[in-house]
Write a protein that binds this DNA or RNA. Structure first.
Lengths: 343, 343
DNA sequence: GCGGGTTTTGCATGCGCATGCAATAAAAAA
DNA sequence: TTTTTTATTGCATGCGCATGCAAAACCCGC
C-alpha cells in the first residue's frame, strides 16, 4: 500500500549499467560510454572519474548491448568436427589465443559428423557472429548462401571448397604427398602404401595425388590404398590389411599423424616389424605426440598456429571488404625427419 | 536532390528484422516476436503467415537483441586449460553437445596456464554469460566474487574449490586410488609407485591419498611418488626415474591415462619390460586411446559425458535458484580392467 | 578581456526484440 | 441476435549502449 512496498518488492540485484556509473560520477550516460570507447572524445580527468566510479560499482560493460548498437559482435563462430583429434584441438586453441588479442571470442559449435554441414550452424547468424571458421567440416551450398546474404564470411581450415563465397586455408597437401614419396624413394623403398582419411576428404585426396603421382613418375604404379577413416582404430585395421596382403609395404604414408600412430602400433606389436627397417612410416600434421619418444614419427608438418593466423587474417580482410572474393591460401609445411624413417 | 537519391544512397544490405517480416506479413512487429516465442499468444494462421514471410526474407532472429530484452543470453562460458588433452577436449565436446539440446552455446575461453585463473574470464560477465563452467582450472576468490555479485553461477569440473560460491563436480578421486591399490594387492604386487599430476592439483592429491592409505592399511609404506606434470613427456621422465631407482616398482598407478601412456612407452621401449608381467600400470580417465590395442590400459574411468551432464544440471539448478548454496557432486567411475594389469 | 577555434559534454535517438496493457476480433453463452 | 467471455492483436515502452549533432566549456593569441 505504501510507497516502501513498491521499492522493496523483491530485491533483484541488477548488474550496474552505464547510467548507474554516470549517476555516481555525476556525468551523462554518453560520457560513460565514451570513457570506455577507445579513441572517443573525452577529457582525461572525466575518464578517470568515470573509471573510478565504474570500479566502485563493479561495472562490466554489456557487450551484447554494445554489439546491438555497433553491429559488431566480436564473436567468431567456430565449427569443429571431432575436437578429440588433437590436431583440431590445437587449431581451436590457437584460434582462441590469437583472437583474444583483438578482443574477440569463440562461439563453439562442435559436431560429431565429419565433413557434413551441421544445420545448427545457422545459429551463428542469429548470434551475429562476425565470421564463421570451420575445421574438418565443409559448408553446404545452402549454408554458404545464407552467410553470404548476411555478409558474414566463412573460412574453412583444411578443407577445400568449390563454393564461390567460401575462403579456405590449407596446408601443402599435394606437396606433403610428393615430399613423402621422394623421401621414401631416396631411402630405397620398394613397396608403397597410402593410408587415406575418408573417401570424401579433399585434403586426403590431395595428399594421395601428390604421393601417387610422384611415385608414378618413378615408374611405381602399384601403390596400395586403404582407408583409415582418420581414426586410430580405423588406421589400425587398415594396417592389418596391408601387412596381411601378399605384398606387404615397406613404406607407408598416412594422411594424418593420428592414423600413423595406429599403423605404427600394429606394425610393432602385432606383426613384430622393426621400424624403420622393416617398414617406414610418414604422417602429416606434426601433432605434439609425434615428437614423443614413443612414436618419434617422421611427418609433414601442418602448423596449427600458422593455419589459425592465416584464417584470422582472411577473416579480417573479408570483414574489411565484404564484397571481396573468397581468399584461398596455402600454408607451408615441411618434412620433419624423425625415427620412423630410415636414416 | 530527388527522392530516389535518398533511398538509393548506398545499398548496404542489412539483415532483415522483425519489422521487415511484419511489414511483409501485414502484421505488427510484436506479432512476429510472438510467432517466434514458444508459448506466446498467437493464432495459428497468423503464425504460419509470419513464418512464411520470414522464410521468404531469410530472417534470422537476432539473439543478442533477444538477450538484451530477456536478460538471458543462453551463452555458457567455458574456461578450459589445455584443450589438447583429449580428456578435456572430450568434456568440452560433451558439454557442447548436451547444451545445444537446450538451445545454449559455448563461449570458449582457452588458457594455457594450468590451475590458475585467467583474468580474461571477466569477459564472460560482459558477454552476459548465464554461467561459467571451468575445467582444469580454478576460479580465484576475486573472480568468484565478481560472478556471485552478478548472479552468474560457476561450476568447476574436476577441481576442488574451497570458495563458497563455487560449485564443483568431480570423479571418485579417492576411490580411484583405493581401487587401484586393491587391484594391485590382489595381484600380488610388491613394489608400488604413484605418478602424480602437479603438486597443487587437488585431484591428483585425492587419488594419491586413496592409493597410499589403502596400501598403508596393508602395511605397505614405502610408495615412491614422482610427478608427471600431467603430461606425456613429464610422465616419461618420471618413469625413467622410477625404473632406474634401486627398487623399481612392479605396480604403477598414474593420476591420468595420458601419463600412463608415457610410463607405458618408457617401460616397454627403454627398459624392455613386459607388461603386465614385469610391471603393471593403472591410469585414470578412460580416454578413448586407453582402449586402443596399442595401450590396452587398465584404468579407473571418469566419464566425460556424466561429468558434463552433472555440470549442466548444477548450472540449471543454480540459475533456477540463484541464492542456492554451491552444489558439490561426485560422479561415479569404475575400474576398467584391460591388458596393462595381470589377469 | 574578447573573438575565434578546439575540446568536451549532453541530448536525443536508434540498434532488434519482448512484454504489460489496452483494444479488438472471435467464440461462446444467453 | 445480443451479451459475455476468451483468444488475438497492436501500442508503447524498455533492455544497455553508441553516436550525430548542437550546446557548453575551454583554449589561444592579440
Amino acid at each position: 500500500m505504501n510507497k516502501k512496498k513498491t521499492t522493496n518488492k523483491r530485491k533483484i540485484r541488477r548488474a550496474p549499467t552505464e547510467s548507474d556509473v554516470a549517476r555516481l560520477a555525476g556525468v551523462s550516460q554518453s560520457a560513460v560510454s565514451r570513457a570506455f570507447t577507445k579513441g572517443a572524445s573525452i577529457a582525461k580527468a572525466t575518464r578517470e572519474k568515470i573509471i573510478a566510479a565504474a570500479r566502485e560499482l563493479g561495472y562490466h560493460p554489456n557487450l551484447l548491448a554494445r554489439s546491438l548498437a555497433t553491429r559488431r559482435s566480436n564473436i567468431i563462430a567456430l565449427a569443429i568436427a571431432n575436437l578429440e583429434n588433437p590436431f583440431y584441438a590445437q587449431v581451436a586453441q590457437q584460434l582462441s589465443a590469437q583472437l583474444r588479442e583483438t578482443g574477440r571470442h569463440i562461439l563453439l559449435f562442435t559436431s560429431s559428423i565429419y565433413d557434413e554441414t551441421d544445420p545448427m550452424l545457422e545459429r551463428a547468424l542469429s548470434y551475429q557472429a562476425d565470421a564463421l571458421i570451420m575445421t574438418a567440416t565443409k559448408a553446404s551450398e545452402q549454408l554458404a548462401d545464407q552467410f553470404k546474404k548476411a555478409g558474414v564470411p566463412i573460412v574453412q581450415i583444411n578443407r577445400e571448397s568449390k563454393i564461390a563465397g567460401v575462403s579456405t586455408v590449407w596446408g601443402e597437401n599435394y606437396r606433403a604427398g610428393k615430399v613423402a614419396a621422394s623421401h621414401f624413394l631416396k631411402k630405397n623403398h620398394k613397396n608403397f602404401a597410402f593410408v587415406a582419411g575418408t573417401k570424401i576428404s579433399s585434403t586426403s585426396h590431395m595428399r594421395q595425388q601428390g604421393y601417387i603421382e610422384t611415385l608414378a613418375k618413378n615408374n611405381i604404379k602399384n601403390v596400395q590404398i586403404v582407408y583409415g577413416e582418420y581414426s586410430f582404430e580405423g588406421a589400425a585395421n587398415a594396417a592389418r590389411k596391408l601387412f596381411n596382403s601378399k605384398n606387404p609395404p615397406d613404406a607407408i604414408f598416412c594422411a594424418s599423424d593420428y592414423m600413423a600412430f595406429g599403423v605404427l602400433e600394429v606394425a610393432r606389436r602385432e606383426f613384430a616389424l622393426k621400424i624403420p627397417i622393416d617398414v617406414a612410416i610418414i604422417g602429416v600434421d606434426d601433432v605434439p605426440e609425434a615428437s614423443h619418444s614413443a612414436y618419434d614419427l617422421t611427418t609433414f608438418s601442418q602448423p596449427a598456429a600458422a593455419l589459425a593466423k592465416e584464417a584470422i587474417s582472411i577473416v579480417d580482410k573479408m570483414i574489411a571488404n565484404p564484397n571481396r572474393r573468397a581468399i584461398r591460401t596455402e600454408v607451408a609445411g615441411e618434412l620433419i625427419i624423425r625415427g620412423s624413417t630410415r636414416r
